[in-house]
């Protein structure tokens, strides 16, 4: 399926949203924008909407896994804040440059304020 917007089909009443290339393009609202717009409306109390079906935040303590290997990690390197599971990994953690440790932390989302 290659985008061929110039083609017309006989079963079509009109091209509704497709535009010829070179014309002004309509920008679509992202899901986020749609939901934000939805949120501002005074919905009835028992209306179930897309944004209201999100999973609740977790109440269980999160388990710690090594950032290097994914094994359960009982330890944390105080210097870089990375989790590690044994001495071997600790050596690895210590040898990593700053940008890589930062990448690992970001991957785990350790930089969020709430977490």
């Amino acid at each position: 399926m290659t985008g061929d917007s110039e083609k017309t089909y006989r079963f079509k009443t009109e091209n509704k949203f497709l535009v010829k290339s070179g014309c002004k393009k309509r920008m679509w609202r992202s899901l986020k924008q749609i939901l934000t717009a939805d949120r501002t409306l005074p919905w009835h109390n028992d209306a179930v909407l897309y944004y209201s079906i999100n999973a609740p935040p977790t109440f269980k303590p999160t388990k710690k896994y090594s950032d290097i290997s994914g094994l359960p990690a009982p330890y944390m390197d105080r210097h870089s804040k990375l989790f590690y599971s044994n001495a071997e990994e600790f050596a690895t953690v210590r040898s990593l440059p700053m940008d890589i440790t930062a990448g690992y932390l970001q991957l785990r989302g350790a930089n969020t304020i709430v977490g």
Binding site: N54, A55, P56, P57, T58, F59, K60, T62, K63, Y65, Q106, L107, R108, G109, A110, T112, V114, G115
Partner: peptide
């Protein structure tokens, strides 16, 4: 366990 990825939402079982 979405927390492994830094997502703070509850996992499938908890939900």
């Amino acid at each position: 366990q979405p927390s492994m990825m830094g997502n703070l939402e509850a996992g499938l079982a908890e939900t």
